[in-house]
């Protein structure tokens, strides 16, 4: 336990240092996300007068959809690219040399990154609200847990793709595509099947919380539970794929041979 805490501290410190070193990248990332949104926003207003982008029928809906997409994408990207980058530069193998196991190291890294992502997300979100005049309910107690529940499925995708890319380098090409497929997941109708897609139901619940002002405990419990289970399901599946790929990679000696 104490050992894990020490490892967590080490990993968290590393993330903070890296964030500082890549500050310019972080800032330009925030700016890009903001600009992309503004283009969407202006475009949506010009074309439809209302919305209908990313499956949203209102400007408020558009903002929530974008928020979910940003958060999912940040976590997913960090995870998938993070592992592949470390394999490329040759630090990945060293992360296996720890008495607590690589899984914990990676888990701690994602956890630390999550904190960073939430901060960046908050920044873009605030910028968007300020400049577009869109009004949303930002009840942190409801919004943050819902965001987390929604994003777990994106983490599942991240684990699965990172694992596959360890074995087949070409999978990297799919990294970008998945980001756009996520838009489709968010926009798909939340019918009996649609709600089983990653991000879909969580997004719906978040819309309900942010547009209609429903508190998290007032949401339909069945839907909330489904969203949690769907997230956990994708995460579990992703971890399983990662685990199997990692074994393959160790068998074929690919951890350090990127």
């Amino acid at each position: 336990m104490k050992e894990r805490l020490t490892v967590f501290r080490a990993v968290f410190t590393r993330e903070l240092i890296m964030m500082q070193r890549y500050l310019v990248n972080s800032i330009s990332g925030v700016v890009t996300l903001y600009i992309v949104f503004m283009l969407l926003f202006v475009g949506a207003r010009a074309v439809t007068g209302g919305g209908l982008v990313m499956g949203a029928t209102t400007m408020e809906g558009l903002v929530v959809g974008y928020l979910v997409w940003m958060f999912a994408m940040m976590g997913y990207q960090e995870l998938a690219w993070g592992i592949i980058n470390e394999a490329q530069v040759g630090t990945l193998e060293k992360l296996y040399l720890t008495p607590v196991g690589f899984r914990w190291v990676n888990g701690f890294a994602q956890l630390s990154q999550l904190a960073v992502n939430l901060t960046l997300l908050g920044l873009v979100f605030a910028l968007i609200l300020l400049t577009t005049g869109v009004a949303l309910q930002v009840d942190i107690i409801s919004v943050v847990p819902l965001l987390l529940i929604t994003a777990t499925s994106a983490y599942g995708l991240g684990f699965a793709l990172a694992g596959l890319a360890l074995i087949h380098k070409r999978i990297q090409a799919a990294f970008q595509i998945v980001q756009f497929i996520m838009v489709a997941f968010i926009a798909a109708p939340s019918d009996a099947w649609g709600r089983l897609l990653p991000l879909n139901l969580g997004h719906r619940l978040l819309t309900s919380a942010m547009v209609d002002g429903t508190r998290i405990w007032a949401l339909p419990p069945g839907s909330l539970l489904t969203a949690v289970l769907v997230g956990a399901g994708y995460l579990g599946l992703g971890l399983l794929v990662m685990e199997r790929c990692e074994r393959q990679a160790r068998d074929r000696g690919l951890l350090g041979h990127y």
Binding site: K2, E3, R4, T6, V7, R9, A10, V11, T13, R14, I17, M18, R21, Y22, K94, L95, L97, T98, P99, V100, V105
Partner: peptide
């Protein structure tokens, strides 16, 4: 991208 000091701290931390 880290300093020698930071690397040493990280890799000892990794060993708990």
């Amino acid at each position: 991208r880290m300093t020698p000091r930071e690397n040493l701290d990280f890799f000892t931390g990794l060993y708990g």
